[in-house]
């Protein structure tokens, strides 16, 4: 059980880490949003899931599972809302300048 919890925590941490690196390194809002989406949803969900597994079958872990359900519902929606708002505000996606996309 502890092994499963540990694997989930480490995986979750990996997603969060990749998300943070993505936010810092990617060129524009949409790319960063893409990075943040996974970090926000899968990373946090895996971490809470791992904590729930290590907690065992208790009321606390049930509450954690409820948080997990909420997160997996709310966070992708929030990501979608952000992206949609950016499109509506007229933010153009980043593209490579002409001539640079051929090696």
């Amino acid at each position: 059980m502890n092994v499963v919890a540990g694997v989930m925590l480490v995986l979750g941490f990996g997603f969060v880490l990749s998300g943070v690196i993505g936010i810092l390194r990617l060129p524009d809002f949409y790319c960063r949003l893409h990075a943040m989406g996974t970090c926000d949803t899968l990373g946090v969900a895996l971490m809470i899931g791992g904590l729930a597994v290590s907690e065992g079958f208790t009321l606390t872990s049930l509450k954690m599972l409820l948080v997990l359900v909420f997160i997996s519902l709310a966070n992708p929606t929030a990501t979608h809302a952000l992206g949609r708002a950016a499109v509506r505000a007229g933010l153009t996606p980043w593209t490579t300048p002409r001539g640079e996309d051929e090696r």
């Binding site: 519902l73 709310a74 929606t77 979608h80 809302a81 949609r84």
Partner: peptide, 11 residues
């Protein structure tokens, strides 16, 4: 937005 609408109605 149908996505936001559905999610909020669920929540």
């Amino acid at each position: 937005s149908p996505v936001i609408d559905a999610a909020s109605r669920l929540l």
